[in-house]
Design a protein around this nucleic acid. Structure first.
Lengths: 132, 132
DNA sequence: CAGAATCCTTAGAGATACTG
DNA sequence: CAGTATCTCTAAGGATTCTG
């Protein structure tokens, strides 16, 4: 018997986690949410709206192309609002929507986890049998 | 001036999010944590220890190879404990470590977010200008 | 300035077969 | 049963160029 809701209770999560019901779509979304650049963009936009080139500079390592694609994806998903000012030269501002902002919390929780446990993970890596 | 800690306070996260100090390594870890199969494995292992083939069956869509690689990675990072019983045929059990279990919570928070907001996202996608 | 289009390169991942 | 090793192939992503 399979439930459709995801409980936060850690001890019960597993059951519906991989139940295949809506698991596929969840994972598909996780792929977008967990995407490297997506995380970066959300992080960069957290303080407030930003223009394209500003994001480019802010994000460090992102290519023009990937930033475009990521932003478009986020806009499609309603996480980011794109505002184009028809000036010359063009000016386009991106900002998190309400939905987008609601993602900050779980995402930063994860970031916090990483920060908190990085030492442990690095220790584990180092002490792993035949560590590369 | 840059802090090294990640605050959970949504309004302040952005600043250190992309500050480049330890951002690189955080992202690198996020890549592993956010990885499709990693999420699946953690989910599958949440209820308790499991053997390789069981995981194969449980996870649906994972190839033999990817499961091996994912599990090895998780073991290296100390998130999963691998126990091999030297019997014939071999029997290998995987289970979450303490560290691994601590990941369940933030991960399921994210999963919960996806579940909660999937309708909104799908609506956004559908109503997007020239939706594919 | 923002973005579209093109090319090109590689790493990721599936399929398959072999081994202890 | 669990794991390794190859081979292959696709598609993600970088660099570059062009346009409104």
């Amino acid at each position: 018997m399979r439930r459709r809701t995801l409980h936060l209770d850690a001890s019960k999560v597993g059951a519906e986690w991989q139940n295949g019901d809506d698991c596929r779509e969840i994972l598909q979304l996780l792929d977008r949410i967990g995407d490297k650049w997506t995380v970066m963009v959300v992080g960069a936009l957290t303080p407030g709206p930003m223009r394209f080139n500003m994001l480019m500079r802010e994000i460090d390592g992102v290519s023009h192309r990937m930033l475009t694609l990521t932003l478009r994806g986020l806009a499609q998903d309603g996480l980011v609002k794109r505002t184009a000012y028809p000036t010359i030269p063009p000016k386009v501002e991106y900002e998190l929507t309400e939905l987008g902002r609601s993602l900050i919390e779980p995402l930063s929780a994860l970031a916090a986890w990483v920060t908190r446990n990085r030492p442990a993970i690095e220790k584990a890596r180092a002490s792993f049998p035949d560590a590369a």
